[in-house]
Design a protein around this nucleic acid. Sequence first.
DNA 1: CCTCGATGATGAAACGTTTCATCAAAATAT
DNA 2: ATATTTTGATGAAACGTTTCATCATCGAGG
Lengths: 372, 372
Amino acid sequence: MKGVVPTKQLKKIAARRPAQATAKRPKIQDVAALAGVSLGTVSAVLNENGRIGEETRRRVQEAIATLGYRPDIYASNMARRQTRVFGVIVSNLQNPFFAETAQAMEDEAAKYGYQISLMATNFLPKQHRDAVKQLLGSRLAGLAVLTSEHDEVSRRLVLASGLPAVFLDVGKPEGKVSILRVDSKGGMSAAVQHLISLGHRDFLFVKNSQKGHGTPLLSHRLRDQGFAAAIRACKVKGVKAHIVDVHGPGADAGYKAIELMYGTHKFTAVIATTDMVAMGVYHGLHSRGVQIPEDVSVVGFDNTYFSRFMLPPLTSVDVPRIELSQLVVAALLQDEPGRLIDLETTLVIRLSTREPATVQSKAKFSRNRPST
Amino acid sequence: MKGVVPTKQLKKIAARRPAQATAKRPKIQDVAALAGVSLGTVSAVLNENGRIGEETRRRVQEAIATLGYRPDIYASNMARRQTRVFGVIVSNLQNPFFAETAQAMEDEAAKYGYQISLMATNFLPKQHRDAVKQLLGSRLAGLAVLTSEHDEVSRRLVLASGLPAVFLDVGKPEGKVSILRVDSKGGMSAAVQHLISLGHRDFLFVKNSQKGHGTPLLSHRLRDQGFAAAIRACKVKGVKAHIVDVHGPGADAGYKAIELMYGTHKFTAVIATTDMVAMGVYHGLHSRGVQIPEDVSVVGFDNTYFSRFMLPPLTSVDVPRIELSQLVVAALLQDEPGRLIDLETTLVIRLSTREPATVQSKAKFSRNRPST
DNA sequence: CCTCGATGATGAAACGTTTCATCAAAATAT
DNA sequence: ATATTTTGATGAAACGTTTCATCATCGAGG
């Protein structure tokens, strides 16, 4: 609130802001005139529809080039009653996974001349619904809901809009709504297998569901289920798992989880539902003097850019952002009945996982540490 | 490239995509009819310009409410020949500082009914220029260039456009271009003072300028200068500083910097030009068995959300994102001659800094560490 | 030579706003 | 009572595209 100009006054300015006398840009008319053709022809060339003769096309393109003409997307959108914008809803740009995904979506959409309108829900059901409403009200070409905390109301809004849409993880394809199913189960399974093969038997799984006001939100449900399934499916004797669910922003949740569980419960390996959560877990363990991976192994989920730089580098389940965005954009573009889209995950093993202490003592690993 | 539908085919679809038969929404006409007034009156009410009688305004607003009318921004933009969108250029969404700043900008702009069009340059001069061109070509209401790698060409493009703009750190106010000067000098000075008062004398400063093809880019120049100035200004005897400049993405650069300097140069404290870089520094030091802060202290710059969760939590210079976005948005809205805008920074002290080893041995600190 | 279909090109109408010159009515001054 | 100003409301024109029914041309088939 230190701004020089009070908010209220700015609001007035914002509303009245006069139309800028922009340096005038060429319009289709100009192109048409220069090329010696009609309006409609130029439009046809631009949009590659209709039939255009070879020679005409060349002339038009030449005219476009010499004038440096670029179509006015607002006029275009208005005439077509349909924008070239995909709405993208994410939970939280703070989380690098979403930041990276948003970036990937933008790049991918740009390939086809589409733009992205990005909204963050910050895990608040109200913001989520508002975002959906606002986006639906703006003539989008498609909507990608990349949060896993859905609410029924907004789901139905989207469905009713008839807009091509992609939801993450939750629900069934219906109308034009496709479901992108990240193979969380497979990822979790790989993580559990990996830890078990190292000799771990006592697990702590840290969930981070975000509680809405009324309905509990379904965030990361597939991951939770995947973990449970992996534990169940495991043939090895003596495997035990504690599950703890903490609310709040990712990293803080991880910290709290350790606060809650460490000391009172036995575990040699932690699986976090998110790299962010894993970060908090690191912090929690570290502040209790627990060494990773000597004392406790940790696995994350997302494989964000940062996981490489955590200390020690984090073993994490990779959710490929690039491919994800390709699949989503393709689905939105095609504008066909909703279907199920599957996305594979892979476990990336780094230094945060190794044999548990008991096993370790036999192997006698020792880390490169300076004599103090 | 695993998408089910080949890119080429998608491009065709993308171009031809038929106008969606959207559930038709009320237009101004409908509102006018219901309220029993004319088009222009409704428009006047909506934009709070012109003179409207009390009673009329009420009726119109009622009609708007009952119809659930929301103006079509595309038609509006077209008629006004001016959008309510601010262009925002950042370096890299991977970097949490930019992600958080982008979020803050979006929130702030939304308060005034404005939107954000976000572009990332990934430190590539070509992308930077392309972004500027594209944004300038789209009837923006203003442009914020929040990267510090400017290039002269795009600076002039912006200037020539006559658009209200804000640049970060570099250059002089001119035309409608304001300069937002983050007090990097003050921040650096605080960081250096802090370290010196702890007893440090041998510094390593890690720059991360991004080299363009032709011209070297000016990223973080103020921070570099701030560091140099702080060292120079310091009255204490025996202060020495090494400066190393590494290119590439932040965290990787930090790692490389340590690779280059550790062992061959003497330093007890590292100041990184960025939290991201600091992260890489952590990694580099750690992999050489160097303890933070026992052996080497580290200071970052930005104070991103993550710095709290690094191990140990990172001492960092805070650049307040919220206030930054308020200042920028205010400047863009006002649309007045460019001026100099100052933004304060503050040093946030966490656990990554303490007395250097020699001093420390006297004090006999010891960390809470479990007996292995 | 005539007809027909295919191919190319045309331009008027529509999209949903904002703007602005103009008008009507009411309030005020003369 | 008349002239003048103020206030409030009007609606046509413009914004820059896309769309689509229509027209012109040409080559082929009869």
